[in-house]
Measured scan of single mutants.
Amino acid sequence: PVYLSVKADNSMFIGNDPVTDETMITALNALTEGKKDTTIFFRADKTVDYETLMKVMDTLHQAGYLKIGLVG
């Protein structure tokens, strides 16, 4: 499974590897070998604001990742 996490300080990680807004999709493409039907499990600290969550989800959708599971 692929886990994308947003921490309380808005830092992002794919698994244990830090990513930025600019590198997130490139890292996901490498990890999933470009398979856009891969489910991305998205988790965020409860203090992360809604705007940040939606920005990340919008970026995922624009890149073609449509299977996003929200996890606690």
Rank of each mutant, 00 (worst) to 15 (best):
A27K: 14
D58H: 14
A27C: 09
E33N: 14
D9W: 06
N16I: 07
I25P: 02
L31E: 04
L53A: 04
F13Y: 13
L60G: 00
G64F: 01
Y50Q: 12
I14E: 00
F13W: 15
G15D: 08
K36T: 10
F13M: 09
L4D: 01
A8H: 09
N16P: 08
T47N: 15
A44C: 12
E51W: 11
K7T: 12
T32Q: 02
T38N: 05
Y3H: 08
L4M: 07
T59R: 14
L28S: 00
D21K: 13
M54T: 10
S11N: 08
S11F: 07
L53R: 08
S11T: 13
H61K: 14
F13H: 05
T59S: 11
I25A: 03
T26H: 13
V56F: 05
K67D: 11
T26W: 07
I25E: 03
T39G: 04
H61A: 12
A44Q: 04
V48D: 03
D17V: 15
K55G: 05
S5V: 15
Q62K: 14
L31C: 07
G34W: 03
K36W: 05
K35E: 06
V6H: 02
A27D: 04
V2L: 09
K7I: 08
F13C: 09
S11W: 05
T39R: 11
M12G: 01
T23Y: 06
V19Y: 04
P1H: 14
E51I: 11
G69R: 15
F42G: 00
D17A: 11
L28D: 00
D45W: 07
T52P: 02
T59E: 07
Y65M: 01
L66Y: 14
V6F: 10
T23C: 07
M12E: 01
G72D: 11
M12C: 04
I25C: 03
D17I: 14
L4H: 01
T23P: 01
L60H: 00
D9C: 06
M57E: 03
D9N: 10
T47M: 13
I68P: 02
T38K: 06
D58C: 11
N29P: 01
G15A: 05
V71E: 10
L28K: 00
T38W: 05
L28I: 11
K67N: 14
F42W: 03
D49C: 10
L4I: 15
M54K: 15
N29L: 08
K35N: 14
N29E: 13
N16T: 10
V6W: 06
K7E: 09
T32W: 02
Y50E: 10
T20H: 05
T23R: 04
D21F: 15
L28F: 02
D9A: 08
Y65D: 00
V48I: 08
H61N: 10
T32E: 01
L60W: 01
F13K: 05
Y50L: 12
D21I: 15
D37V: 04
M12K: 04
E22C: 06
Y3T: 06
T59N: 11
A30Y: 09
L66W: 15
E22A: 11
S11K: 12
G15F: 07
K46C: 13
A63F: 06
M24A: 02
L70A: 05
I68M: 04
Y65S: 00
D58L: 12
D21N: 14
G64Y: 02
D37K: 04
A63L: 04
V71I: 14
T32H: 03
L31M: 08
